[in-house]
């Protein structure tokens, strides 16, 4: 089956196309990793068009869509999730959401990505790739890491550990979605992993316009 994979949980958007055989073997046909900062909404569908063209297929050939659900900065994250939902809906395809951190690196590791506000998103994985901790959001100083760390290397100093640079990949997204791709009816609804509440505080009292 031909799978379109998307992720906008980090400042580098990912769009990839992979062929997955019935025995689970995955071949990535085309991939774009675009450093797009906060321009995900502008560049994501352009990247999708590019990977379709690079693989010599059309959107009508796609059989399933996989998307990262974050955690990631909210505005950018939603771009990938809603794009995946809408593409899949328009073509009547299954859409599968995965934790974006699952698609960074492989094997036993702790993944850290930038959560802004001096915090990181994190998750920890066992040697077989199973997530055993997280996803969470924390100040790097408060994260006790044991074993290799991959992801955003800018946090090495504050973590007190080496960080091997790694990003979300198409292969990683497909690996994280393997079980649901084998049985698309098991895919859960697409709910982003926000991990933080919206910043909004109900006013307790309204101050008068006039001061006496």
């Amino acid at each position: 089956m031909l799978v379109l994979a998307l992720d906008t949980a980090t400042p580098t958007l990912v769009a990839g196309l992979a062929r997955r055989s019935t025995d689970g073997v995955t071949v990535v046909l085309a991939e774009r990793a675009v450093p797009s900062g906060n321009r995900h909404a502008e560049l994501l569908t352009v990247a999708v068009t590019d990977v379709l063209a690079a693989a010599g297929v059309t959107v009508a050939d796609v059989d399933a869509v996989v998307t990262g659900l974050g955690p990631g900065p909210f505005t950018g994250l939603r771009v990938g999730v809603v794009t995946a939902a809408a593409l899949a809906d328009a073509r009547g395809l299954p859409v599968i959401g995965v934790c974006s951190l699952d698609a960074v690196g492989s094997g036993a590791r702790t993944v850290v990505t930038d959560a802004r506000r001096k915090e990181v998103y994190w998750a920890t994985y066992a040697a077989d790739g199973a997530r055993v901790g997280g996803p969470g959001v924390v100040r790097p100083e408060e994260l006790s890491v044991d074993g290799p760390v991959v992801g955003d290397e800018r946090f090495a100093e504050r973590l007190g550990a080496d960080v091997t640079p790694a990003d979300v990949t198409t292969a990683g997204l497909l690996r994280a979605a393997a079980a649901q791709l084998a049985d698309p009816s098991s895919a859960a609804p697409l709910v982003p992993l926000y991990l933080r509440r919206p910043d909004a505080v109900p006013p307790t009292s309204f101050k008068p316009v006039t001061t006496t």
Binding site: T45, F74, R78, V82, T83, A85, A90
Partner: peptide
Amino acid sequence: TGALLVGLAAAKAYALALD
């Protein structure tokens, strides 16, 4: 902005999917 981007991304995806 954040609200606009949800609609924009969705519309782009429908347009792409429907060609």
